[in-house]
Each structure stands twice: as C-alpha cells, then as structure tokens.
Simulated assay, not measured.
Amino acid sequence: MADLIVGICRFSFLGRGDWAIYSGTGHGSEAEAEARRKVAETLYRPERLEQRFRSFEALTLASIKAQRHPDFHFIVLTSPAMPPAYRARLERLCAGDGRIHLLVSDRPMVNEALAPLLAQISEDGRHRLVQFRLDDDDCLGIEYTAALHRAAEAGRQYDVFAFSMPRGLLVSNYAGAEPARYEIDRPFHSAGAAVRPRSPAQTIYSFGHYALMRRFPCLLDPRFLGSLQLKLEGHDSRPEVPRRGNGLRLLEQPVFAENLARAFPFVALSQLETLLLA
C-alpha cells in the first residue's frame, strides 16, 4: 500500500515548539505559563500577523495549490488564542480545497495537537505517513510533491527514512542591508524537510531538521529547486548571510528571475519584491 504524503505548517501556533523562551521551564509550571503569555504577545501582534498572512497566502498556500503532483494532504496548525478576526481570515484562506486541513488546537505540544488528525488521515495507522514541514513564510517548488512521492516509493523497504531537496532560492531583507537574492544548497534545511517516522506518535517536529540526515537513511533530490525561503527583519529565524561552507550563493537579479519563473511560476518577481519591502 502506497504511503500518504502529509505537509504540516505551524501558523502562529501557541505551543512550546522550539521557542528559546521555553528553555528550562517545566510542563505545567508557572514559568511555562509566563513564557506562553509572552509568546502570545509576540505571535498575535497585528503587524506580525499581517506580515505572516501576506507571505502565507502569496507563497505558502499558492505553492501548495500549484504542485504538479496533487495527491497529498496539508495541515495548517494554529491555536484558539488567535484573535477571532484573524482566525476567520485563516479559515477563509484554507477553505475550498479538500487537501487543506485547518487544525485549531489548544494542546501545548505540537505532536499532541497533530495526533488526532494524523490518526484520521492514516486511518488509525493503516497507511504510513510521509510528513514534510513548511513554514508560513516559505513555499515549495512545483516539482516538490512529485519528487517526494518518488522518494517514498524508493524508501518503502526502510522502516523510517528522511528526504530533502537541498537546492532552493532564498531572499532576505534585513535592517541596514540591501535586499539580497541567493541560491541555497544545504541538505535538510527546514523548508520541505521530510520524514516517514517509525512510530505513529512521532511527527516531523519530533526531530531537528538537520539531525534527520544523521539519524536515518535519507534521500536527496538536487535536480530541482525545492523551496523558496523568505528571511526578513523581525522573523523568527536567525539572519542568513553567506559564509564559507554554508551553502548560500549570491545571484544576480536576471538569474534569480529565471529560476523563480521556472520553479515558482505562481509568484511574480514584482510580487516577491513587494513582500520583501512590506
């Protein structure tokens, strides 16, 4: 029986996740509750949410709907603490495509929140799930799910395997610097990192994405540009700049535009530049 493909995006999910502020706080402790309150203040600031909705709609969701291989599920995980107007907006964006599941959960841990829906999709374990991760400011190249289906078929004999498309595009705009455009070539960067876990209790978020290639048999597909990542001032990730051996190569705009049109035809260069400067 063929494995099922399931993508997962945490959209302003108010859980422990990988926020540094939770480090050293115990489950159920007052320190954890205080950390959660501070995280909520950051997550649900209107200016942050507006920025996230722009990239989620123009990049993340657009790439999901543009995949050449349409056989997959995509879960968007958020929390009931999201302000009602924004939650309604998210519901509208996720409606109308049966592959897209909006999951609203008050569970404090990502795996706990995902468990019921993953069990439903897998028919209580009848199907194995190959899970990929995608942030709400990133998107996938149009060949991604087709490549992941091929990888899942190739990895059927393993009880667990991991997958990455190491090549992609990355654009950045940080304070004090001009917008920059890069090709990234880095196995198991976060955008599109995938795993078929051994245990139904595990998800793609059970593992650090760079740890996947050190823990499990893995398959890399460098033939296509698998992802486009947006790195902006104020986003949750650390700034990306070229350093020796870190897989970033600066691209001139004509080369970048050519690659964008080929692998990400759902987003125009002018639209991407608007997102960079918003």
Rank of each mutant, 00 (worst) to 15 (best):
P222S: 14
L232W: 00
S227H: 13
P187F: 08
R244Q: 06
A257L: 04
E252Q: 09
S227V: 00
P197Y: 08
G208N: 14
Y205T: 06
S190F: 14
M213R: 15
G234I: 12
R214M: 08
A191D: 03
P239W: 15
L248Y: 07
G208F: 10
A194Q: 01
N246G: 06
P254V: 10
P217Q: 04
T203W: 08
P239N: 10
C218H: 12
R214F: 11
P239T: 15
A257E: 15
V195D: 01
R243Q: 15
F224R: 03
V255E: 15
H189S: 11
Q229N: 12
L225A: 08
P197K: 01
V255Y: 05
E252H: 06
Q202V: 02
L219F: 09
F224N: 05
R249Y: 07
G245N: 09
R238N: 10
A193W: 00
G226Y: 03
M213V: 09
L220C: 08
L228N: 01
L251M: 13
S206K: 14
V195C: 02
H209D: 04
V195K: 02
R238A: 15
A211D: 15
G226C: 03
S199Y: 13
E240R: 15
M213W: 03
G226Q: 01
F224W: 08
V195H: 01
S237Y: 12
S190Y: 13
L225M: 13
L250Q: 11
D236K: 02
